[in-house]
Write a protein that binds this DNA or RNA. Structure first.
Lengths: 91, 91
DNA sequence: GATAAAGTATACATATATGTGAACAGTGTC
DNA sequence: GACACTGTTCACATATATGTATACTTTATC
């Protein structure tokens, strides 16, 4: 089980709503976890990312923890702030 | 040159703004084209997709032609309406 | 246990995506 | 040309993501 899986398990145990939606297949809930994982790999704090995106750290926290939904541009910007890019596919 | 490329070229020639943003690398502009391509492959009209998503056909047209930005949930729903799924990656 | 750094939670304001309906345009068929 | 079908554009209303500031929590270090 990798770090992302561990994180998901932790979120599930702490939040019934998260667990319920996650099991339903709403993997959008994974997005926040993905971004957080990518941020930590880049060795950045939420505040550092916030500064790059010219916003506050609370906004970053919200994205990582409560991103039931998110704008595509926000995803793209977040990825860019980490020096990465967002790949999309309809398959 | 595949159909999507042809479509992009057509949009570029008709809309300077589209061309400009596209060349800048704002590939979000590709999203609408991607969705349209997927819809046509599935053999569905905009109205059919609109019905599945319980919305109007004008909303579908707008997404395909003027989706400078779009919500992740909208992308996911659209893909589902076509019997497909959305793949995301931060790389 | 005091302090600082990092992250979370909340509330309100603002920006913007989407819903909705109507009018109009393009395309093909008769 | 009339008709039906498909897609586009517009305006307005509504829903919701994000900006912003503040307070609180957690964790680590001393």
């Amino acid at each position: 089980m990798d770090d992302l899986d561990k994180y998901i398990e932790k979120r599930k145990s702490k939040s019934p709503k998260f667990a319920q939606n996650y099991e339903k297949g709403y993997e959008q809930f994974k997005i926040g976890a993905l971004l957080k994982e990518a941020r930590l790999e880049a060795g950045l704090t939420q505040e550092q990312v916030a500064n790059k995106l010219k916003t506050g750290k609370s906004a970053i926290s919200r994205i990582e923890n409560h991103a039931e939904d998110i704008r595509l541009s926000t995803l793209v910007n977040y990825a860019q702030a980490l020096g990465k890019s967002l790949k999309l596919e309809v398959a």
